[in-house]
């Protein structure tokens, strides 16, 4: 079972990536699309532009953001030894969102394209500094969770305040729509801004497999097996912050992927966190790519938001999870 999971996931992600490149309102043929992407192409500049400046960044961001969400979710669940943990738990998503919302509200985002993602990244950086300051030196999980909850609440209040004070309904609507999360109309500039952070963050998170495996037996046993818990926590917090901060900066807050994907894949990889990490990265990428394609297919002219769709699929799954847990506990 475990042996076929990875090849299948890789095939699935590759297939969805190409599907994402081929599906869109422009209705390009396969040959035409590939020619425009890789070579000169016959369809003229418009087709080349559609492929390279609209569909390619969208597919690449879907891949990267999905991988970041899945991987960070698996790492967070492994570190906290809790199947209900998700990447937003340490407050990075909410503070990044607050940064973005402030950029929208102040008009910075309208004046300068990259102001929004940069403000979101700044929010993520600030939250990490605060989290590390609050969470104490000994590498425990509880203070980390509490600090994350407090920061999320604070950032949520900040976002509400911005909405509350917004000068007109249009400004508020713009903020609300941004917060739903989307990959539409992103450019290669967004890719170049987010990709380095996401890559670095994911690389850091992928090194934590051995420590997370040992943590299966609890903090004392893990430490006695040579795991430096304080260092492990630092890598998890920084890796999650880089990957998730950058994801929120370019795609908005896309919920439930980091929670649901590790869950779906855990039984398929024998529950070991070190195997779940790469599997979840692939699974997250597949889920985001699929959901993003679905937004284009279901309602092409209504600009259906990615975050809405993932939550619509994710929340019922979450309820099912609680239902199953309830039955096991009873």
């Amino acid at each position: 079972m475990t042996r076929v999971v990875f090849p299948l996931l890789i095939l699935l992600v590759a297939g969805l990536f190409f599907a994402s490149l081929l599906i869109g309102p422009a209705g390009l043929g396969l040959k035409q699309a590939m020619a425009a992407l890789f070579g000169r192409g016959e369809g003229g500049d418009a087709v080349v532009m559609v492929m390279r400046d609209i569909r390619l960044p969208r597919a690449v961001l879907g891949l990267a953001v999905g991988a970041a969400l899945g991987l960070a979710g698996a790492a967070m669940q492994g570190f906290l030894r809790n199947p209900l943990a998700e990447p937003g738990l340490i407050g990075v998503s909410s503070t990044a969102a607050l940064g973005a919302v402030i950029a929208l509200q102040t008009g910075l985002a309208a004046a300068f394209t990259l102001a929004l993602p940069l403000a979101a990244l700044l929010g993520a950086v600030l939250s990490v500094l605060l989290i590390l300051l609050l969470a104490g030196p000994r590498g425990g999980a509880l203070t980390l969770i509490l600090a994350g909850i407090a920061l999320s609440a604070l950032a949520g209040a900040g976002t509400s305040l911005v909405l509350n004070l917004s000068p007109n309904p249009f400004a508020a609507a713009e903020i609300v729509f941004w917060m739903m999360g989307s990959l539409a109309d992103r450019s290669m500039t967004h890719v170049w801004l987010a990709l380095p952070f996401i890559t670095l963050g994911c690389a850091a998170l992928l090194t934590t497999g051995r420590g997370l495996d040992a943590l299966t037996l609890g903090e004392d046993a893990a430490q006695s097996m040579g795991v430096d818990l304080a260092r492990l926590r630092l890598v998890i917090v920084l890796g999650t912050a880089a990957a998730i901060g950058a994801s929120v900066a370019v795609a908005g807050a896309v919920g439930f992927v980091g929670l649901v994907v590790p869950h779906l894949l855990r039984p398929l990889v024998g529950a070991r966190p070190s195997r779940l990490l790469p599997a979840s990265a692939l699974g997250g990428a597949a889920m985001i790519l699929a959901a993003d394609i679905a937004t284009r297919l279901i309602a092409p002219d209504r600009d259906l938001k990615l975050g809405v769709l993932t939550a619509l699929v994710g929340a019922p799954f979450f309820l099912h999870l609680i239902w199953r847990m309830r039955r096991v506990e009873a």
Binding site: T216, G218, A221, Q223, S224, G226, G270, R272, P273
Partner: peptide
């Protein structure tokens, strides 16, 4: 930590197994 792991093994009192991993794993 890594040197200590080769010097001493520890069986803690809290017997937690967070995930359903196999005996061999």
């Amino acid at each position: 930590p890594a040197v200590r792991a080769r010097t001493v093994a520890f069986l803690p009192q809290g017997r937690e197994i967070a995930w359903p991993v196999t005996v061999a794993d």
